[in-house]
Each structure stands twice: as C-alpha cells, then as structure tokens.
Amino acid sequence: MTVRDRGLAVVVAVLWGANFIAMHVGLEYFPPIFLAGLRMLVLAVPALVFVPRPRVPLRWLIGFGLGFGTLQFLFLFLGLRAGMPVGLASLVLQASGPFTLLLGALLLRERVSGRQWAGIGVAVAGLVTIALVRAQAAAVLPVVLTLLGALGWASGNLCNRLAQRDGDRVDPLHLTMWMTVVPPVPLLVASAVVEGPATGWIAVGAMFSWDGLPALASLGYLSVVATVVAGAMWTALMRRYPAGVVAPHSLLVPVVGMALAMVLLGERPSVVELVAGAVVVGGVLAASAPARRRRVTDVDATVA
C-alpha cells in the first residue's frame, strides 16, 4: 500500500472507532432497538430513491441485511444498554472475524488453514477470559449480547460474499446501501412491541430541540460518517488491494474505541481485560491472515 492509502486506512479505523462513542451518545436518547432501526431507515430512504439496486440474488441481499444490519446492531445496542463498556464492545465485536471463518468452513466448506484455526483458538481464549472477568462482576449478559452481535455480523459477511459471488458486476457500496433497506421494518416493529409504539418517535421529535442536538449528531455520525463516508473509503481500498492487505487495519478499531472510551467516558478496563484484549486482537490477526499461496478477493466485512 502507498503511504497515502495506509493513512486512509488509519482514518477509516479512527472513524469506526469513534462510532462506538456515537452509539453511546445515541443510546442515552433513544431506545436501543429503535435506534438500530432508525439508523438504517435514514440510509434506506435515499438508497431506494437514488441508488440502483445491485443485481444480486434477493435471498443474499435479505440475508446480508438481516445478519449485518439487523442482528448485529440489535444485539450490540442491547448489550451496550445492558452495561457493556463501549471500549470493550469495540473489542469483543472483533469476534466477527473468527465467526466468519467458522461459518464459512461449516456452511460453505471453505478451507481454513492451521494458522487460522490457531488464531481462532487464541481469540476464543481471550474472549472467554473477558467473559469470566465480567461474570465475576455479574455482567456476563452484555458480553453474550455483544458476541451475538458479532455472530450476526459474521452471518451477514457470508451473505455479502455470496451476493458478490453470484451477482452481476456488483458495486460493493451499492450493495451496502441496499442492505439498509432490509432492517428498518423488523427492527421498528420489534421496537414497537418491546419498547412501546410511541417511545422512539417521541425521542425523534425531541431530537430537533437544543437539548437533542447530541442525539441528532449521533444519528448523523452513525448513518452518514460511519456507514457511507468510512464505508466508501474502505470499499475503495478493498478494490485497490487484496483483502489480506487491507483487513488487518480494522484491528485498529478496538484500539481507537478503547482509547476514546477511556479519555471521553472514563472507562477503565482491568489489567486482565487489557491483556485478554491483546490476545483477542492477536488471534483475530492470525485468523484473518489469508492462507499461503492463495489469492484473497472477497470483501469480508463492513465495520459497524
């Protein structure tokens, strides 16, 4: 990669790391399920009007939307609302990488190298350590919810991959935009049932007041900056270089997320959690490395 493109990859990682702070702010104003649906609704409307529908099988488009756009953010936002520290959430969500490899091996019979299996094992060991530490504080539920979000992301990755494999000249950014058409209905219906039919919309009305400006800024960041701007830059890098060259830069996301959470929110993870986090990052890095003598062309992830 050129120096300029490495810098661009770092900028994307910073934008995605700051995304978790925006989630924290948004969840102070909106119910979690509603916020997950509203974030996607903001993008779904212009996607329907302005973005050409990608020529991919409908089942993979729906699967991408349900996995990446619905289940990931449903469980992630519920985990954050249940008490998952923001910085730790940015780290635990990286379990989507090993989950993607596991699902690919189990469902698509993709080959996983010994080094990748070892990386999965290391990452799982780190995640189990974090869960045990949290369990001692009676806070294991937020970790489980965040892991379910990572599993949703991984299932979306597989559908994304299959859509691009079976589609005709697919533009990844168009595919990502059209993915947002799927989540609003199930998420907003679930919000109406669980959180109340008017609760979220009352928060939307208050968002346009002076006190609601942080909520408006959070929603704008989640929808426009983190998804469209950062996603477009990441897609451009993925088109320019093999995925194995670009993808490791995403491991900077939890570093940025945890650093910002410590500075802005005063979070202080324990020494054990920090060590376990380093183990998780190392395992994900090993698991995400492509097998030798194998050209990697799939775009495996779009970060939260």
Rank of each mutant, 00 (worst) to 15 (best):
A123S: 12
P32E: 06
L93H: 09
E110R: 15
L265T: 04
A289G: 05
G7H: 02
Q136L: 09
V194D: 13
G283E: 11
R161Y: 02
M179F: 01
V256I: 12
V181G: 09
R59L: 13
T180E: 03
M258I: 15
A137P: 01
S218K: 11
V303H: 15
A125K: 10
V170G: 10
V182K: 03
A301H: 08
A13R: 05
A276N: 15
W178M: 06
G37C: 07
W117I: 02
R39C: 11
V124T: 12
A95V: 02
F34T: 12
L43W: 13
D298Y: 07
L148R: 09
A198H: 14
T180G: 04
A217F: 14
V225C: 08
L27C: 10
S218T: 09
A198W: 07
D211E: 14
G37R: 10
F30C: 01
L48S: 00
S113M: 01
L252A: 14
L285S: 12
L188W: 09
A192F: 03
Q164K: 10
N157P: 07
G37Y: 14
T2W: 03
P242N: 03
R109I: 13
E273K: 04
G79I: 00
P248V: 06
P54Q: 06
V10T: 09
G79N: 00
V112N: 14
A18H: 07
A289P: 00
L48Q: 10
T199P: 00
A95Q: 06
L145Q: 08
M238A: 01
V281P: 03
V11L: 15
P248R: 14
A105C: 07
L187H: 10
V284Y: 03
A259L: 13
L173N: 15
I33K: 14
G83S: 01
A226S: 15
I21H: 05
V271E: 10
G67M: 04
L158R: 05
P46G: 08
V303W: 11
L265I: 05
R55M: 10
A18V: 01
V182G: 09
A217S: 10
V170H: 00
C159K: 01
V256Y: 12
V143P: 11
V281Q: 03
R268C: 00
L188V: 10
A163E: 07
P57A: 11
L93E: 08
Y241V: 08
V246S: 02
G67H: 02
R115W: 13
T2Y: 02
F208M: 10
F73K: 00
V281I: 15
A125H: 05
D168E: 15
